[in-house]
Design a protein around this nucleic acid. Structure first.
Lengths: 237, 237
DNA sequence: CCGAGTTAAAGTCAATTTGACTACAACTAA
DNA sequence: TTAGTTGTAGTCAAATTGACTTTAACTCGG
């Protein structure tokens, strides 16, 4: 991503001549049970920087735009290389291009965001340099990445209301209570179970299966399936 | 923007080494009375390309990202330089980065969109190389710019429902009927005047003035003012 | 095997919002 | 002065929403 270890006079004059560096980064959201309450909460994987600037700090996974890939492909490829993830939902979030996002060199980052299902999330093995964090109350990250995560959270809360994002955080089959828990986790408020059920039953792309989730402590809930696609909300690009 | 007049063997090998070119373009919407019905409809200014590729064809105003400007500043500056416009509403739309958007060189375009008020729109003088077009039924444009305009229209229709965009297409003071006409133009359907009025009266940032629009043919309507800001919908960036 | 406890799922009902429509007000044009 | 047109307020039934109750289906502890 950002290569120059420090700024020099040469760098500064070059800055006017050479085009800005183009980076692709991704904010990845997944649901994990909170350590405290056990309820699902939003988490995201971060990678530790192994170079200057911000060496040793945590940052969004990303890298330079590979020439042979479209923006989406570049995001997907980088995600696989750095975290091992292959998310079922991956969409462009925003292009950040402030002048001082990175010391020394001007960097324009095209940021994607992803939702991964619990089974997918397990693919992102934690290691010395890859770790999952709770999305709220994040420590200070490299570059302007706190800012980017905050923006992603704001968009997530907005899109939740009328979008299909929730289903991409769940597995293939899910109970209505699980969907409700996603809403509660993201919107950070309780939702009436009965009314929520009534709403979902008249939205498209939610299909009841004949299966029930067994092994719970009480009456087994029916399992549902989401039959929509990722492109349900954003069409052309 | 795209400089190479034609592709060469040297170009192709260089493509892998040098970063993609970064361009900023803008889709500008304004309201103008339709020639046929007289009702307001969506128009946008386009500029004629004076270089290859696509020389002579119409395209969105844009240019390379200037090094000293943020993305927003670069969009605003370019808009002023090419069309003379200084829109009151200017926001990032999407980053387009397909591999073959431009012949010869890879170009990533960060596209902004703007809404200009009627008085502002007059600043964009038509000339040999700058002309206003109706947003729907556009002729074939340079690059993938038809695709970009279609996407902008889709976003506009979506955002209209719960956003503040309509007011940025109108002047400082406006009648409720004018707001309704904007909705009708963008959503392409009729809206009940009485019900629309009831809705608007309980939305924030719409303030009644003590003035009335005189000179009409019938009962003069009250003028209103929008007191919100551009950042009402999109917060952080 | 029974009853308490818990969650799923369906149903009730009043309050609010929406869509279609009516009525009246305020102006222009003839 | 009157007919025509648009602005504005109000009415009413239908649809939607939020708070709540009821019944069903299961587990677990005795």
């Amino acid at each position: 991503m950002e290569r120059q270890p420090f700024a020099s006079a040469a760098n500064v004059s070059e800055r006017l001549a050479q085009p800005p560096a183009l980076a692709i980064s991704t904010v990845i959201f997944a649901l994990r049970p909170s350590a405290a309450s056990g309820r699902p909460t939003l988490w995201l994987p971060l990678v530790r920087r192994i170079r200057e600037p911000f060496r040793g700090m945590w940052a969004l996974p990303g890298g330079p735009l590979t020439q042979a890939d479209s923006l989406l492909d570049a995001a997907a490829r980088n995600l696989r290389d750095t975290t091992g993830l292959a998310p079922s939902y991956l969409e462009q979030l925003y292009a950040f291009g402030g002048l001082h996002r990175s010391p020394s060199q001007r960097v324009v980052s095209i940021v994607y965001w992803a939702m991964v299902q619990p089974t997918e999330a397990e693919m992102a093995q934690e290691s010395e340099n890859v770790k999952w964090f709770r999305a709220d109350g994040l420590e200070t990250l490299a570059f302007d990445h706190n800012h980017i995560v905050d923006y992603a959270l704001w968009r997530l809360r907005n899109k939740m209301a009328y979008g299909s994002i929730a289903y991409h955080l769940l597995g293939e089959k899910f109970t209505l209570a699980q969907v409700r828990e996603v809403y509660e986790a993201v919107l950070d408020r309780t939702v009436d179970p009965a009314n929520f059920r009534r709403q979902l039953k008249q939205t498209p792309h939610i299909e009841a299966t004949e299966e029930y989730l067994q092994g719970g402590k009480h009456r087994p809930p029916r399992l549902y399936r989401y039959t929509g696609t990722m492109a349900e909300d954003s069409p052309v690009p």
